[in-house]
Design a protein around this nucleic acid. Structure first.
Lengths: 218, 218
DNA sequence: TAGATTGTTAATCGATTAACAATC
DNA sequence: TAGATTGTTAATCGATTAACAATC
C-alpha cells in the first residue's frame, strides 16, 4: 500500500471513531425497528453514556448531515454508517482453523448482517478435512490457494493455534487475499499489501483483570 | 467505585498500554522458552514492529527495571507483566450463554493461562439446562445468584443473544460479581459498582472492512 | 419567536515521540 | 574504554472537549 493511501485513509477517521460506529449503528437500527424516524446526537449520547459532542464528531465522518434543532434522519444515518464501513457490500471470507472459535465465527449472526459471508473453511488436522461444519466443507490448509481462487474470497479469518499461524500466513502470502482477521496472538510476518488486523481476546481480558482490584472494595 | 480510585487507576496506565502488554508477554515467554534470559526493548520493538521508546514506556508501567546497555531480565519481565495485569491470580468466571461463542471461550487455552477459570455456566434454553458442555453442567439463568454464591465467581462472561442481555444483567446486579465481560453489543444498564468491559467483535470487523478498499489496488 | 441542536473553529488534554544524561 | 540501552524530561502530535454562530 502506498504512503499516500496510508495518509489519506488516516485523515478520514481515527480508529477509536471507526470502532465506535458499530455501537451507533446498533442503537439507531433499534430505534428504527421501534418506528423512530429522527434521532439526535444528544439522545444517542444519553443512551450510550457518551458526550453529545463526541457523538456529533464521530457521526460527522460518515458524511451524514443533521438538521439543527431536529437531529438526524434515522434511515439516512443507518445508510451512512453502513456505507462508510463498507457494510453494504459482501465480503467473502475463508475461515482457517475450525476449532471452537472458528466454528463460532462461522455463523455469528451479527457479522453476517454486516456483509461477512463465509465461503469456505480449512483446517490442518486430516480427520477434519472433508467433513462439514455449519454446512461448509472443510478443506486442507495446503489447498487454501485453490479454495481462495475458486471462491474469490478477499479475507481470511485466522483461528488456528499459535504454532500454526505463521505457516498459514506464508501460504496466504501467495494468494490474492486482501486482509487477515488474526485471532491468534502471533505477529504475522507477511507482505504489507495484506492488511492484518489483530483481534487478541487477551487484550480485552487484560483491561478487565487489571481494573478488577479497583472495584473490589466499595 | 470512588472517584479517587478512578483517578488513581487511570494515572497508572493508559488503556492502549494495558492492551499492548499481552503481546509483550507473549513474545517474552516465547524468548524464555527458547532459553533467552535477557531481552532489550530494541529487540522487542523489532519483533513487534513498534518503536523502542514505545516499548520502554509501556513496560515501565509494570515497574520493571532494566539495565542500560543490557536490557531486561526475561523472567523478571514475565513476572512483572503478569503481576501488573493480575494474571498471577485465579479469576473465577461463570459463562452465561452456551452457544458457539460461549462454548469456545469455555476452554480457550490462552485465557486459562492468564488465570481465567470457568467455574460455571448458564443458559436460557430449558433443553440445555442440566446438560454438560466442556465438562461443565449448565444451570438455568434464574439460578445464577445461587451459582455465583456457591462458586464464588467474581466475573461473568456474557455471550447471550442481544435480546437477553439486559435481563441477565438485571439478575447479575443482585449478585456479588465484580465484572462482566460483555460479548453482546448491548450497552448494559447496571450499577456502576460492576465493571463492564465491552468486547464487540463488530468493532474489529469495522476497522477491517473500512480499510479494505485502501488495499484494493497496488 | 424562543430554544434546542447542528457543524465548525478553537482550546485542552493526554498519548506518542524525541532528546539526552546516566550507566553498564 | 566505547557504544548501546535505559529511564527521564521535554516536545510534538492527535484526539477529545469546549465554545459558539448558524438554523430549523
Amino acid at each position: 500500500m502506498s504512503k499516500i493511501n496510508e495518509k489519506f485513509k488516516q485523515s478520514i477517521a481515527s480508529i477509536p471513531t471507526i470502532k465506535s460506529l458499530p455501537s451507533y449503528l446498533n442503537l439507531v437500527k433499534r430505534a428504527s425497528a421501534e418506528g423512530t424516524s429522527i434521532i439526535s446526537a444528544t439522545n444517542i449520547a444519553r443512551e450510550l453514556d457518551l458526550e453529545p459532542i463526541q457523538v456529533r464528531k464521530d457521526l460527522a465522518v460518515t458524511g451524514i448531515i443533521g438538521k439543527p434543532r431536529i437531529g438526524y434522519n434515522v434511515e439516512e444515518l443507518i445508510q451512512a454508517i453502513q456505507s462508510f464501513l463498507n457494510w453494504d457490500v459482501k465480503h467473502k471470507a475463508v475461515i482457517v482453523g475450525c476449532g471452537n472459535l472458528g466454528s463460532a465465527l462461522m455463523n455469528y449472526g451479527e457479522l453476517k448482517n454486516h456483509g461477512l459471508t463465509i465461503v469456505g473453511a480449512a483446517d490442518a488436522s486430516p480427520e477434519k478435512v472433508g467433513t462439514k461444519k455449519m454446512g461448509i466443507t472443510i478443506s486442507a490448509v495446503d489447498d487454501l490457494p485453490v479454495l481462495i481462487k475458486k471462491t474469490g474470497a478477499t479475507m481470511v479469518i485466522l483461528t488456528v493455534p499459535p504454532s500454526e499461524a505463521q505457516s498459514v500466513a506464508d501460504i496466504l502470502d501467495t494468494t490474492d487475499i486482501k486482509a487477515i482477521w488474526n485471532f491468534t496472538n502471533v505477529k504475522l510476518k507477511i507482505s504489507n499489501r495484506i492488511l492484518v488486523l489483530m483481534e487478541d481476546l487477551s487484550s480485552g481480558f487484560a483491561v478487565l483483570s487489571f481494573h478488577l482490584p479497583f472495584y473490589k472494595e466499595d
